[in-house]
């Protein structure tokens, strides 16, 4: 019998953080009952939130949390891509630039001078951009935060060698499947459901609150037809710009619609 440890055949998983609140990567730890099964099937080799001795090298799957906001991160994401067979972005920051992409509409130098006493120590980019703006991405998970079930779906799909199943239709599908009477039609509540990507299970409308688009745009949005609906239900131009400029503000469809709205 050899003294050497048997080689670990489990796929190696890494979790990377860029500009984010960490909520999406912590979703992995929130998997609770599935976490033990998961750690039996994949080697969590690199994860600052959970692994005390990060294992350098290459990885079968990299989960990337956060957007690119500094020159250093713009370089680091190139390294992540180079050492990863599959790269999956986690949530609104990594997939669309996050709430911090509000800087894209303003003068960052001005912010920096207002916030920091000695702003010469701050090295930041003028924009917050999604991972896909820098390197090729294999799969993008939506949401702020991501849905735990969808994260497990992506990992199990890769383990089984199949395509992940994360429908790109509107949140309306999920309200109807859940049996929630439409809050736009029955209550006149402004709701981004018709233009928002499914995946949350239509959580907010089930509690009488309008969807605020935290999963970003669906694969088929029609803003010219949709915006008048928000206005009918009481939103002003400022309200509309604001509701489109949250976690997915830099998603191309939301960005174009909010800019169009500002132009009037």
């Amino acid at each position: 019998m050899s003294d050497e440890e048997p080689e670990d055949a489990r796929p190696r998983l890494a979790v990377w953080k860029f500009a984010s609140c960490d909520g999406c990567q912590l979703t992995l730890l929130d998997c609770e009952d599935d976490l033990l099964a998961l750690s039996g099937k994949v080697e969590v080799a690199f994860f600052h939130e959970a692994v005390t001795a990060p294992d350098e090298g290459t990885y079968d799957v990299s989960l990337v949390d956060g957007s690119i906001t500094t020159p250093e991160d713009a370089e680091r994401v190139q390294h992540v891509r180079a050492v990863s067979r599959r790269l999956v972005t986690l949530g609104a920051c990594a997939t669309a630039g996050g709430i911090q992409a509000l800087r894209n509409y303003a003068d960052v130098a001005e912010f920096r001078a207002a916030v920091y006493a000695r702003d010469e120590y701050i090295d930041t980019l003028a924009t917050s951009t999604p991972i896909s703006a820098h390197v090729p991405v294999d799969f993008e998970l939506r949401g702020c935060p991501i849905d735990r079930g969808q994260l497990l779906e992506v990992i199990t799909a890769y383990l089984a060698g199949r395509t992940p199943d994360t429908p790109a239709h509107s949140v309306c599908f999920e309200c109807k499947r859940r049996g929630t009477p439409c809050i736009v039609v029955a209550r006149g509540i402004p709701c981004l459901g018709p233009v928002t990507h499914a995946g949350c299970g239509a959580l907010c409308p089930a509690y009488g609150r309008g969807c605020y688009g935290c999963f970003g745009p669906s694969y088929s949005t029609k803003f010219p037809a949709f915006i008048p609906l928000l206005r009918r239900d009481g939103m002003t131009t400022l309200d509309i710009v604001r509701v489109l400029r949250t976690f997915n503000t830099a998603a191309p469809e939301f960005d174009a619609a909010s800019r169009q709205e500002e132009l009037g």
Binding site: S170, C172, A225
Partner: peptide
Amino acid sequence: TARCLTCGNCTMA
């Protein structure tokens, strides 16, 4: 089509 959101509500209802 200019008015349709393609949200799918009609088919679900």
